[in-house]
């Protein structure tokens, strides 16, 4: 690296007038051209445009243009990114990194939303709208407390993100190099090596092709097998991040699953189903054990276009168990 830096210095020094080195390629950019493309914003505020907005203004914009992916409260629908919350989770087993819990600078929100969101219609928001949405995301994350706080060039410097001090530099290499020790070549472990974990147990690898032959999953009447239902309760943990059942259940990323057996598909009030689910419902899809087993095995193969982002339960026993478990909730 050093050598070429030196080389560059050398070139610079030997160049007669600054232009003699030049190959005369390209042309000078106009100020309008630069203004059109140079939209980046830095933590020190460089690049922030004129304009302003409040969280109150941002709320409606967000619910119109962002909520169908990121959720009304920024909680994230399906696997779309969660933008709000996750405070104090960074040392957890499953940290939740959001704008509020993780991002060190508010300028990054402005810059990113401006250049890349809404997904599929980038750079369609006005500067005022980006200020308002940025204010809304800060407000939802409790970074600003007043929903009428006016975010602008003038006030941006006042914003301090909770995790601003959460970052340090790269300290790699952080594992032993040759200079520390020659790697061991013989009898390197105490005794024979054992397998401690297997990928096939998890079974999350996509299959090449060729599904196994279909088995008949039907013909289980609404009589509950308690042992099977209990096994199903464990399986249902995989669904819990998106679905609730029983008393006080609410729609989350997925619809409430109470009273599922025998109910028509796509029927839960207030839940926004995919077009695919609505179509299947209008064609008379009913959730009997057979249909459920098919859908749960491979949601996206069974119902192309479904928005349930779930890989599926490959094991027939698992599907039967979770269906058994769900039978209990009317």
């Amino acid at each position: 690296m050093l050598r070429s830096v030196r080389l560059a210095v050398l070139i610079a020094l030997t160049a007669m007038p600054a232009t003699a080195e030049s190959l005369g390629l390209g042309r000078v950019a106009t100020s309008d051209e630069i203004a059109a493309w140079d939209i980046d914003v830095r933590p020190d505020g460089q690049g922030l445009p004129a304009g302003q907005g409040t969280a109150l203004d941002g709320e409606e914009l967000f619910s119109d243009q962002c909520a169908h992916c990121h959720g009304d409260f920024g909680e994230g629908v399906d696997r779309w990114p969660q933008l709000v919350g996750g405070f104090d989770t960074l040392t957890d087993d499953r940290p939740v990194k959001t704008v509020g819990s993780y991002w060190p600078y508010a300028s990054t929100i402005f810059d990113y939303v401006h250049r890349a969101m809404p997904f599929g219609n980038a750079q369609s928001l006005t500067d005022d709208e980006v200020y308002a949405i940025t204010a809304y995301l800060l407000y939802m994350n409790d970074v600003i407390e007043d929903d009428e706080f006016v975010l602008s060039q003038a006030t941006f410097g006042d914003i301090e993100m909770p995790n601003a001090d959460g970052f340090g530099e790269d300290v790699r290499p952080d594992t032993p190099a040759l200079s520390v020790a020659e790697p061991c070549m013989t009898d390197c472990t105490k005794g024979a090596v054992r397998v401690t974990m297997r990928a096939l147990v998890l079974d999350v690898t996509p299959e090449g092709d060729g599904d196994e032959p279909e088995e008949a999953d039907a013909e289980r009447v609404l009589e509950i097998d308690p042992a099977l239902a209990e096994a199903g309760a464990k399986i249902f943990r995989k669904c819990k991040s998106c679905h609730q059942v029983g008393e006080g259940a609410k729609n989350k990323a997925g619809p409430i699953l109470s009273g599922l057996l025998g109910r028509a598909a796509g029927e839960v009030d207030g839940f926004k189903y995919s077009k695919a689910m609505k179509e299947a419902a209008s064609e008379g899809l009913v959730w009997d054990a057979d249909a459920l087993s098919g859908y749960l095995e491979k949601p996206r193969a069974y119902l192309k276009g479904t928005k349930m982002s779930f890989a599926g339960l490959k094991d027939r026993e698992d599907r039967l168990a979770v269906i058994e478990y769900l039978k209990q909730f009317d």
Partner: peptide, 26 residues
């Protein structure tokens, strides 16, 4: 100075067990 954009703050920073993240791990 660096821009600290989304791909070098939200993403491509390495969260350690102590809750601190390494940045610019190129």
């Amino acid at each position: 100075m660096p821009w600290h954009h989304r791909e070098e703050t939200s993403k491509y920073t390495d969260l350690m067990a102590d809750g601190k993240a390494r940045r610019f791990t190129w």
